[in-house]
Design a protein around this nucleic acid. Structure first.
Lengths: 230, 230, 230, 230
DNA sequence: CATGAATGAGGCTTCATTCAT
DNA sequence: TATGAATGAAGCCTCATTCAT
């Protein structure tokens, strides 16, 4: 009555063969599967709209396991956010901007950023969802903060080189610039649906997307080029 | 002696004497109260996160009345969206860009856009929420589409005047430009929480906000100024 | 997706006839039905063992209504406790102990207490459950405290009269005495199952119950009678 | 140089060399650890409220081991109950009541009972929990029944001696008396939280506890003393 | 025009228990 | 003897929506 009745042995047990290695591997695999499924679900529906049931189902595991590994929905969301930021900053770190001329470095950064957003639409929705919650989860994460120090430094270095050799205007704040570079792509893609609806243009067609990429390059380049009169 | 204070009639007190006209007025008042409450709630929590109960409560009306007027949550959300877009486009329409030099007109548009976003944070969350739903509601609204034709025309006119007199570069797509102007402010404000967390800067402090406004002006102006070599 | 789909009209609506009075009456009736069902369930299974589903089902109402009226399981439990204490103290208050001789008054109080416990076994389980939780709910209830002031006063008055006329020993603390009177019955009934099991006696048979009632009377009377030597 | 501190072997460390004997010893240790942890958890939360997870964790063993040794939660609960009853009856058996005068013997029994309840609060909660389940577990245990025969006999012997020498009234049922002795302490302690809340007294303070002990002695003695007139 | 009562469906989370080694 | 991985069932609670007046 008040005590839960003992569970009868289930009949659909999966008799996975394999040694301790298999178990171990499955543990990692389960965690990864949950994280991947959660990323997809949170991206598609936001934190509030995602369903734990659906995440577990599409990860191929039991809901209880999800809670065993991640604690609760919000902690899982934070885990997803951390993995997501680690991914973009990790990819970004391979750009080797130092090896390029300032203009070429900036062009590559702009292209990378745009392309990353295009190829990882989940990044945008996840970050939007986190902003709806005023970054409540991210604020608690030291890991994510640490990821961003090198980014700012690298951009600052490019700007300095560019200013020194006369390719760029001087006095540009690397954080402001990075936010602008991100803005021009992120907003376009994040708001493509409403913008497309109100301006009656399919902003996500390949042609329009390519046009936008060029436009962003032009805006950034146009802004950075030094004043004609100086 | 104490004079009894007149009882303030409740928003929709049924004790109001009067015929159809009074009833009509109360109806209008109720509708408006619901819409205002819904705007606040949807802005604060998104479509999925907003609670019909809470909207009704904070509007001071019964839930059933809300359904009576608006049908369901999604229809209410669309009503909020339409009102929200009408508001920004209406305010924008009073700018009288035609009366200004191209540069001044552009500056005013940029300032207006930035300031509007700052002063109407609900606009951003509402539009984000609609984008999470792939503009499913907006696509059904003719009203909103119509609101945007004049905007594009007006910007196009400024760009043409600017190109003609040499103040601006030629060949700029007004839609692309408008999206960029919006991007630079919207993204900054929409993502201020996550950006603030990862860059460890309070991007919403008055000082930082003013810095951003100037930066946006510079980016737009820097981009539009004609090439030095031409 | 993220937004819950609208509910289709249910087909099993109960077309209760009747005017506003019916509605009103049903509201009270629903509350009362929930409280009664909750009392039974909490008594049978304790706070932790009771099931909200079962309470709602046996009250003939929807779970959501239960939450609408009572907030949550614990608040419902407190409501049950308050009603339960009000009941016993209310019944007790009709005893008119002042109209009886001290001995007769005490006898009546002992009988009442024993009989109440016998006839209201739910009282015992509910109070036990609350004690398992260290009276966490009761401590927050002013209502219950107020109920007990008259009880102590009334017992004190009987004791004083008894001591004055030589029927009782002097210096008895009314609270200690009341606790003892309650003990002798409550413990017997509350622990009848374990005591019955270990002593191999059916302590709840009518004969044994009557024997216990007399025993309690004797213990109380034996204790209160003044010392022979004095 | 720093001398490396010897690593304390974990409770069930598998690195322990040795044959079956060692394994046996660890097994015993694990069983005991589980039983102790279970006693604490069941006492603190009742059968329904205790968590198998928590028991295993605080015993420092794996949950599966717990099931390996005890079968299931309810069987573990019974094991705890049996050990608990064995403990109190074992301690009681050392009282040597036969060596004392009837009055002194009774006083010692009352004191022992009270003190045991004070020092073993887990006894009370465990027994209460078992009563909530109508002694379903205990009824199946022959071991526990056997423990209680000597108790009844010993009390009966004291009562007879007391009646014979005129110290006690005649005709007292030893089971009734034992239940009353237990009642007066058990109920007070078991219900200290609710009684304290309603009577607004801290019944568990040292001073109040001592007052209760004396009161119980007085009640038992007052009841047992022979009638003055006879 | 307005309302308090009521509900079905589903959401997050917990828990006793078993599996495979 | 011992364990980490995994799960089915169920528990508490919420929420958009409808009913009856």
């Amino acid at each position: 009555m008040a005590v839960r009745a003992p569970r009868k042995p289930s009949l659909n047990s999966r008799s996975t063969r394999g040694g301790a290695a298999t178990r171990q591997r499955n543990a990692e695999r389960s965690r990864a599967a949950i994280l991947a499924a959660a990323t997809a679900q949170f991206a598609a529906n936001g934190l509030g709209g995602a369903r734990v049931d659906e995440i577990a189902r599409s990860a191929g595991v039991n809901k209880a396991l999800l809670y065993h590994y991640f604690g609760n929905k919000q902690a899982l969301f934070l885990a997803v956010l951390e993995a997501t930021y680690a991914q973009i900053r990790g990819a970004e770190a391979t750009l080797e901007l130092e090896a390029l001329s300032p203009s070429a470095a900036m062009e590559r950064l702009v292209d990378f950023t745009w392309n990353y957003f295009v190829q990882h639409p989940e990044f945008i929705t996840l970050v939007n969802s986190e902003n709806l919650h005023r970054a409540a989860h991210l604020k608690r994460s030291k890991r994510v903060r640490a990821l961003h120090h090198p980014l700012v430094e690298r951009i600052g270095e490019v700007l300095e080189r560019g200013a020194a050799c006369g390719e760029f205007r001087a006095g540009v704040d690397p954080v402001q610039l990075y936010i602008s570079i991100a803005s021009l792509g992120y907003f376009y893609l994040s708001n493509a649906h409403t913008l497309g609806a109100v301006f009656e243009r399919d902003l996500l067609s390949p042609r329009e997307r390519e046009a936008r990429r060029l436009h962003v390059q032009e805006v950034v380049h146009g802004y950075l080029r030094p004043d004609a009169s100086s």
